[in-house]
Amino acid sequence: MGIETPPATEEERTAHIEALKQRLTANSTIYKIFLSDAALHSVSRGVVTLRLTLTDAHVNSRKGLHGAVSAAIVDFSTGLSIASWDLRSQTGASVDMHISYLSTAGVGDVVEIVATAERVGGNMAFTTCKIFKIGENGEAKLVTLGQHTKYVKLPGQQTAAKSS
């Protein structure tokens, strides 16, 4: 039997996700434009919550949260949720993304992004993302609901041999 690694502390998990968030925004122009101001609000195993105040860069011609920005948020945040699962440094490649646009938010609105890794396996991860508009009274209204499947096999992992 191998030696088991002790579970990460909340501080270690948060520091790992903050460092990954910084690396991803520094290395991706689209993440830099849309998500460099996103603040990490909380991290637990498989769940990452961010807050972002929307600017002109986030809205469409009708001044509502742009669908492409929502997709980038889903992609970015669900990758962080996968990394928070086991502190990996790679978040995988998108296989499928489904997004429902339920409401809207505009410039100056604060959105809370809750990304959850529902299941992280050896090859695939299944995630959800909810983007809420936070009202002045603190009430959260669901704006976007995303489901995201990612291929997450880590380099060097062996796959089971196929039987003929």
Results as ranks from 00 to 15, higher is better:
M1I: 08
E10C: 09
E11C: 03
R13Y: 09
A15N: 15
H16V: 09
I17K: 01
E18D: 15
K21H: 15
K21T: 14
Q22Y: 11
R23W: 13
T25W: 10
S28F: 08
Y31V: 02
Y31W: 10
I33P: 00
A39N: 09
S44C: 06
R45E: 11
V48T: 09
T49C: 12
L50F: 12
R51N: 15
T53M: 15
L54Y: 12
T55P: 13
H58D: 14
R62V: 14
R62M: 12
L65W: 09
L65I: 14
H66V: 09
G67H: 08
A72K: 04
I73S: 02
T78I: 06
G79W: 01
G79Q: 07
L80K: 06
S81N: 06
I82R: 01
I82H: 03
W85Q: 04
A93N: 07
S100K: 08
A105V: 05
V107D: 02
G108Q: 08
G108R: 06
D109A: 11
A115D: 09
T116G: 06
A117M: 04
E118V: 13
V120R: 02
N123V: 05
M124N: 01
M124L: 14
T128S: 11
K130R: 10
K133F: 01
N137T: 14
G138I: 11
A140L: 12
V143L: 06
T144R: 00
L145G: 00
H148I: 05
H148V: 06
T149Y: 00
K150A: 03
Y151G: 04
P155M: 10
T159N: 12
A161K: 12
S164D: 11
